Simulated scan of single mutants.
Amino acid sequence: MELMEIIKAIILGIVQGITEWLPVSSTGHLILVEEFAKFKLSPAFISTFFVVIQFGSILAVIVLFFRKLNPFDRHKVMRERRETISLWMKIAVATIPAGIIGFLFDDIIEEALYNPTTVALMLIVYGVLFIIVENRRKRPYVTDLNELSYVTAIGIGLFQVLALIPGTSRSGATILGAVLLGTSRTIAAEFSFFLAVPVMIGASGYKLLKAGMAFTGLEWIVLGVGSLVAFLVSIVAIKFLLSYIKRNDFKAFGYYRIFLGIIVLAYFYFMV
């Protein structure tokens, strides 16, 4: 039994690591995978696992972009340090909307909206939006992180609020919002990565404190394994996305979301 729970954590860590950064909804994938790899652990732990496992994904961002995010890097000149501090300030203000709404309504949102129907519909809706936005997309005017204004950063932060609805995809909502607000695909993806750092660290810490961290030894091992796998896979997924969008648009992800949404609806309405 213990080995099976660890294997399930590895599988879910792989899914988390891939889908957290691609705009395809990690929740939509995890809700399907969990149907075939259900944990035989306490409900409180399982709820915590799916939030805290994201911490592994966040570590991947910190490792890959450490120099860009570190204002104290000794190789940076004063101008670069000021630019890095400015980037963090933009990240901070963009985090506020989702932080407030998430803190106030986390339980309500989870209870009312965390279900296959909501997840499937959001997968389809945002899949369609990605296709529409790419078809009507104009030339971006923000092609460097230093060109990103506070107003645009806050605007992206408001789009992140939409990601509180399961199935939306945090990266999907913020990338879509950034592109609509005039950023290049690369800047949209990078700022989405950075914006996840305080949000997901806060969500993971809050969930752990809320659960009281009263887990069994096996549960801590499962959580650690899942997070480690999510970290390693996230590194690959982030590098892939940044390479992919240099030559391609986001329409393929839109079509994929629509397909997955239909699969989720079909499975839970006709197979379960």
Rank of each mutant, 00 (worst) to 15 (best):
F55Y: 07
I201W: 09
P97R: 10
F193R: 14
T19G: 04
V33Q: 02
V51C: 10
F49T: 04
F193E: 12
S184D: 12
L209E: 03
G102N: 09
I31Y: 05
V199L: 15
V33Y: 02
Y267N: 07
G13K: 13
S171R: 10
N146I: 00
L164D: 09
F259N: 01
V119A: 09
E83N: 14
I201H: 06
Y114R: 15
L223C: 06
I201L: 15
R82V: 14
R82W: 02
L30Q: 01
G254Y: 06
L242W: 05
E83V: 00
V33A: 14
F50A: 08
V233Y: 01
L180C: 11
K8V: 04
I109D: 05
A230F: 08
V225N: 05
G13C: 08
I96S: 05
G102L: 09
G224T: 07
V142Q: 08
I85P: 00
D106N: 15
R139S: 14
R137G: 02
L121E: 05
F240L: 14
V264G: 03
R82C: 00
K210C: 01
P140K: 11
F193W: 12
L209W: 12
T174A: 11
S149M: 04
S204T: 13
I131Y: 11
R81E: 11
L195Q: 03
I187G: 10
V179C: 05
A44K: 14
P166V: 04
F231D: 04
F45M: 01
Y141I: 10
L59V: 13
V128K: 03
N70F: 14
I187R: 04
G182P: 11
A189D: 11
T84Q: 07
V151F: 12
S171H: 07
D73K: 02
H29Y: 02
S47C: 00
L218F: 07
A196H: 06
V161K: 04
Y256V: 01
F231H: 11
I101L: 15
I108E: 10
F253M: 02
F36S: 07
Y267C: 04
V63I: 15
M213I: 15
A211H: 06
P166G: 09
A252Y: 10
W21E: 02
L232R: 08
F268N: 11
I11C: 07
V161I: 15
V229Y: 10
L148W: 07
I235F: 09
K38P: 01
I11M: 09
I31W: 01
M1V: 10
F49N: 03
F215S: 12
F105P: 01
G205Q: 08
F50W: 05
R74K: 15
L265Q: 06
A173V: 07
I10N: 08
L104P: 06
G99M: 14
S86I: 02
Y150C: 03
A214C: 01
